[in-house]
């Protein structure tokens, strides 16, 4: 996002944050940690992208989360605390809790990725990896640009195919014809993508991509604030991983729910929340500074 305060930090700092944010969510698989991560990911996304982020959340990750919460207890019959029987299978509290945890993890990872895409534009990504792996980093950023384009192109293909035989007495769409149509769209999309990539590769080579000694237009200098942020974030993340290894974040769903002490989990959750709040705090701090400077005018 343009004008975001978090982007004024060095791209390496941004990158460290997102990598740790996602890694911690997946590794420290504990209900409290997951809840903190999910809530903070949504708050941060809204801070970066506004209402659009909420719309995105309810349209995509939220649906997957609901499905996960419902499906896990229906198909996994592990766990001792039976709530009721559905046909032959017991539906257990443990499976429900585990399903909810998985749901929170998926939701948080998707929302952090969403925040990532708002902040880490291709140039910022290349500033992190450009020197070490220029081709890989560029290919990666091209894939990121390609995905939304492919999605919108698929929509256009479907619409164009519909319009070709519109207004006539077409048979009502059943599942079979829908599947067939989907396959057709996919096949066109693949060809389109291949065609495109040839042009893009030509355009890159024509402009000297791959020559030795690539330079960078935007230089990012590491300053005191960058170092401070990087150190704080890394310290918290390393602490969390160490705690996980030492059993501080203990959580087992099966056969019966088992967690470590509440007090310990509470302290750890607060530390973790502090980590996740870094971008939010930076943004809010910038807002305050701006308001103050405006009030002086």
């Amino acid at each position: 996002m343009n004008g975001s305060a978090f982007t004024k930090f060095h791209p390496v700092v941004n990158f460290i944050f997102f990598i740790f944010a996602i890694a911690m969510t997946v590794v420290v698989f504990h209900p409290a940690a997951l809840a903190v991560s999910l809530v903070m990911s949504i708050i941060t996304a809204v801070k970066f992208a506004g209402k659009k982020a909420l719309k995105y959340f309810f349209a995509f990750p939220f649906v997957i989360m609901i499905i996960s919460v419902i499906l896990n207890p229906l198909f996994v019959h592990k766990g001792l605390t039976v709530m009721f029987y559905l046909g032959e299978g017991p539906v257990t509290v443990e499976a429900l809790v585990y399903g909810a945890c998985t749901a929170m993890m998926i939701g948080a990872v998707i929302m952090w990725s969403y925040c990532y895409s708002q902040i880490m534009t291709s140039d910022r990504f290349m500033a992190v990896f450009g020197k070490a792996a220029p081709s890989t980093s560029l290919v990666f950023s091209m894939i990121l640009r390609f995905l939304p384009r492919a999605k919108s192109h698929a929509g256009k293909i479907a619409a164009a195919q519909d319009l070709l035989c519109a207004g006539g007495e077409t048979a009502p769409e059943n599942r079979k014809s829908k599947v067939r149509k989907g396959m057709r769209v996919m096949s066109v999309l693949t060809t389109w993508a291949l065609e495109n990539s040839i042009d893009t590769a030509d355009s890159m080579r024509a402009r000297g991509y791959g020559l030795a000694g690539r330079t960078m237009y935007r230089k990012y200098a590491f300053c005191g604030a960058d170092i401070a942020a990087a150190v704080i974030m890394t310290a918290i993340a390393v602490w969390m991983f160490a705690e996980k290894a030492a059993g501080g974040w203990m959580f087992y769903a099966y056969p019966q729910i088992m967690t470590g002490s509440r007090a310990e989990a509470g302290v750890l959750s607060i530390a973790m929340a502090l980590f996740y709040a870094v971008p939010f705090i930076i943004e809010t701090w910038e807002d305050i500074r701006w308001n103050r400077s405006v009030s002086k005018i």
Binding site: D123, S141, M142, R145, N196, D199, Y217
Partner: peptide
């Protein structure tokens, strides 16, 4: 094709 020749995601880049 105007689309296919663009490599990066920002105009300045």
């Amino acid at each position: 094709n105007p689309d296919n020749q663009i490599v990066t995601d920002k105009v300045w880049h």
